[in-house]
Computed example of a mutant assay.
Amino acid sequence: MKKFLTLFIVLFSIFLVACLDKNVENKITNKNSIQKNSSILTVHFIDVGQGDSTLILTPDNKTMLIDGGDNSQGEKIKNYLKKLNVNKIDVLVGTHPDADHIGGLDYIIDNFEISEFYMPRKSHTTKTFKDVLIAAKNKGLAIKEAKYGVVFNLGDYVKCEILNPVKKYGSDNNQWSAVIKAKYNNKSFLFTGDAEFKNEEDMIKSGSNLKSNILKLGHHGSSSSTSEKFLKIVNPDVAVVSCKYKNKYGHPHKEILNLLKKYNIPLYRTDEQGSLVFYCDGNEIWTDKKPGTYNYYGNK
């Protein structure tokens, strides 16, 4: 009898897991109907190799693109957006002047109608940075300053806050990174650019509400970002990292992988899984992919 009861419990548990998996599958497999559902927000972490590019599509068809990968990724991002029938970008953000974040933005500016363009007030001497400025000027596109305290609505449903740069940070491009929190009803996403420990501490001291359901790890999962203190305050349900498979920087670093594992935070990663899409109805978030691994591929 005891063996039978044990077998029954095991089989019933397997049945429950199968049902849950099926429910999740049913929720996301018919993506066309999901896109037509007027209550769904989608967040796309586009695989641009060793770089960042994130697309947000709101329930009322407003769009925000955060970063554009390096110089080779502009056309790939354009094609990705076109497949989603995106022809206009309501808010474009270049988080900071590094080429792996703004390299493709001149191409995007040339090929899309842009309503608003935000960048931090940090200049750079590179051709990549100058190309973005020229593209914006040729389009008659003013650049708004991305800084702490800026709040804007992305359509009628999504509220966005810029939480960094909190102050002036000298010559370090990464520390100037625009950090954006996007909130849809009861759920929120935190996009951190290449923000580092100093920025995290400044954001904590600023009193900003950092709690977010999904955290895009700072600086591609570098050990100079995502302190344990910051991670505990954000307290994400999942973390996402954008980087190239077996990149030369060793991203994501072992320290960050161990930290996420310590707090049992599932990690989704473009280097293992390609582009990632999260769906949100304002009360729950789901995706069609299982989490990636905590595997470390670098030498750091």
Rank of each mutant, 00 (worst) to 15 (best):
L7R: 11
V10G: 01
F12R: 06
C19V: 15
K22Y: 12
E25Q: 13
K27Y: 07
T29S: 13
N30K: 10
K31E: 15
I34T: 13
K36I: 01
S38C: 07
S39I: 06
H44G: 07
F45H: 08
Q50H: 15
D52A: 14
L55D: 01
I56P: 12
N61T: 13
G68N: 07
Q73S: 12
G74N: 04
K78I: 08
Y80A: 10
V86K: 01
K88H: 09
I89A: 03
V91Y: 00
V91I: 10
L92I: 06
G94R: 00
G94V: 06
P97D: 05
I102M: 02
D110V: 10
F112N: 00
I114R: 06
S115E: 12
Y118W: 03
P120I: 07
K122R: 04
S123N: 05
T125L: 14
T125Y: 15
K127S: 07
K130T: 10
D131W: 05
V132C: 14
A136T: 08
I143H: 01
G155V: 11
D156V: 02
V158G: 02
C160Q: 07
I162T: 07
W176R: 03
V179I: 09
I180K: 08
Y184F: 14
T192E: 03
G193E: 05
G193K: 00
D202K: 14
M203C: 03
G207H: 15
S208H: 11
S212V: 06
S227T: 15
K229N: 15
K229M: 10
L231G: 13
L231R: 01
K232I: 12
N235T: 09
C243Q: 10
Y245M: 09
K246I: 04
H253V: 07
L260S: 02
P266T: 13
P266A: 00
L267P: 09
D281R: 08
Y294T: 14
Y297E: 09
G298Q: 04
N299H: 08
